[in-house]
Simulated assay, not measured.
Amino acid sequence: MSTATTTPAQQTAQPGGAATRTVVVSGIQPSGELHLGNYFGAIRQHLELHRQYESYFFIVNYHALTTIHDREALQRYTFEAAVTYLALGFDPEKAALFVQSDVPEVTELAWIFYNLVPVSMLEKGVAYKDKVAQGLPANAGLFNYPVLQAADILIYGGTLVPVGADQKQNIEICRDIAQRFNRTFCPPDRPLFPIPEPLIREEVAVVPGIDGRKMSKSYGNTIGIFDEGKTLRKKVMSIVTDSTPLEAPKDPERCNVFALIKLFADAETRHRIAEAYRQGGYGYGDAKKELIQLIDAHFAEARERRRELLKHPDYVMDVLREGGRKGRQRAQEIMEQVRDRVGLHYATYRPETS
């Protein structure tokens, strides 16, 4: 946790003004095959945190609708995301793992938040502008993405949100929304929503793809978490490098291959490979072969667990259903208070009589 820009608060304001333990909330979007950028940027951190704190991790299929309009693809990616978490070691006995749409209250809360958020705030969204610049359709879902994300976080009383550096602004919007709601609908001494903190690990803020840009499904430059054999070799061997000849010394810190090696290798291996770069006689092809070995070794056990999970899809669905039950129970508790505070519980109203 010391590598993060923010550490968990021990006591955080919660519904009714009480203090409680840290609640970790985060999600993963099932918009395609999960890759090394997803793993180092989010999933690995989720796996560490879910054993330490009360946690809610979910597969954000509502968010995926901003880009996916294919029924079967969305179903497949949602299932594969769940399998990936379980194969990598997520323990459903320790924390809730579920699908966003199994908690429909989140969209109800998002609608309430929409009525508090100035359009000008969303127009400044860097993530929205970046995605449109990449060619994604500028639909209303993409524009309003941060508001639904805020509902995702606050409906479970989230206090700590592990995210990539590119999501920092969205967490700032979430914090603003929580404060606006508390000011508008809550007594000063009884805020409903905590003000969540982002947890960002700067050393893996950007994982390079095979073309040197940030690894992203949008760029088509990814290496899948469970790629192996010829598929893995083809992708790794196509990683872009410069034209420095084999015999010449090279700077490992300027190489996309070494940037990935650093994510997998222990300190001794990193040092050995870095020295080989600097001494010369060590080619990029040599580095790529070592990277393949490191990836294979790192995910070997998870690949076997994944193969077993694929044989037992009912177990995966049971995990998601139980996680959804836990998530919805928490969400319903929060929404009862939200509805009461904003005035949606109209049946309790009685006119004054003289």
Rank of each mutant, 00 (worst) to 15 (best):
residue 95 A to Q: 08
residue 159 T to S: 08
residue 272 R to E: 13
residue 191 P to K: 02
residue 258 F to G: 08
residue 47 L to D: 12
residue 173 I to W: 04
residue 74 L to R: 11
residue 347 A to N: 13
residue 192 L to T: 09
residue 102 D to I: 01
residue 20 T to F: 15
residue 75 Q to N: 09
residue 332 Q to T: 13
residue 280 G to Y: 09
residue 2 S to G: 05
residue 68 I to R: 05
residue 343 G to E: 02
residue 60 V to N: 13
residue 208 P to M: 06
residue 133 A to V: 02
residue 110 A to Y: 05
residue 51 R to Y: 01
residue 109 L to C: 01
residue 168 K to E: 01
residue 298 H to N: 05
residue 117 V to H: 10
residue 70 D to R: 03
residue 162 P to F: 07
residue 194 P to L: 06
residue 17 G to R: 12
residue 146 P to H: 12
residue 122 L to D: 05
residue 72 E to G: 08
residue 333 E to N: 09
residue 191 P to G: 02
residue 184 T to F: 03
residue 167 Q to D: 11
residue 292 I to Y: 08
residue 158 G to K: 01
residue 278 R to I: 03
residue 145 Y to E: 07
residue 246 L to I: 15
residue 26 S to W: 14
residue 133 A to L: 13
residue 49 L to Y: 03
residue 187 P to F: 02
residue 57 F to R: 01
residue 195 I to M: 00
residue 66 T to E: 07
residue 59 I to W: 00
residue 34 L to G: 11
residue 125 G to W: 05
residue 90 F to C: 06
residue 2 S to K: 12
residue 278 R to Y: 03
residue 301 E to V: 00
residue 166 D to W: 08
residue 319 V to Q: 01
residue 174 C to Q: 10
residue 232 L to N: 01
residue 136 L to G: 08
residue 6 T to P: 00
residue 45 Q to N: 15
residue 328 R to D: 10
residue 311 K to F: 01
residue 78 T to M: 01
residue 253 E to K: 13
residue 306 R to C: 09
residue 53 Y to V: 03
residue 352 E to W: 11
residue 23 V to H: 12
residue 79 F to Q: 14
residue 114 Y to T: 10
residue 184 T to C: 10
residue 241 T to M: 09
residue 66 T to P: 03
residue 41 G to H: 02
residue 27 G to N: 11
residue 4 A to Q: 06
residue 13 A to M: 14
residue 302 A to G: 03
residue 240 V to L: 15
residue 119 V to I: 06
residue 327 G to F: 09
residue 1 M to Y: 10
residue 305 R to S: 12
residue 15 P to E: 11
residue 117 V to I: 05
residue 33 E to G: 07
residue 47 L to V: 05
residue 342 V to M: 13
residue 134 Q to Y: 07
residue 215 M to T: 09
residue 190 R to D: 15
residue 203 E to R: 12
residue 79 F to V: 02
residue 92 P to Y: 09
residue 96 A to H: 11
residue 81 A to K: 06
residue 354 S to Y: 14
residue 231 T to P: 08
residue 242 D to E: 02
residue 172 E to K: 03
residue 217 K to M: 04
residue 117 V to F: 04
residue 297 A to K: 15
residue 38 N to I: 08
residue 188 P to E: 03
residue 5 T to C: 07
residue 22 T to Q: 06
residue 86 L to T: 13
residue 313 P to L: 04
residue 22 T to P: 11
residue 306 R to Y: 11
residue 159 T to P: 00
residue 35 H to C: 07
residue 179 Q to L: 15
residue 44 R to K: 15
residue 260 L to G: 07
residue 140 A to F: 14
residue 238 S to Y: 09
residue 270 R to P: 04
residue 208 P to Y: 09
residue 203 E to W: 08
residue 100 Q to M: 03
residue 295 I to S: 12
residue 230 K to H: 15
residue 101 S to E: 07
residue 29 Q to E: 00
residue 282 Y to P: 07
residue 25 V to N: 10
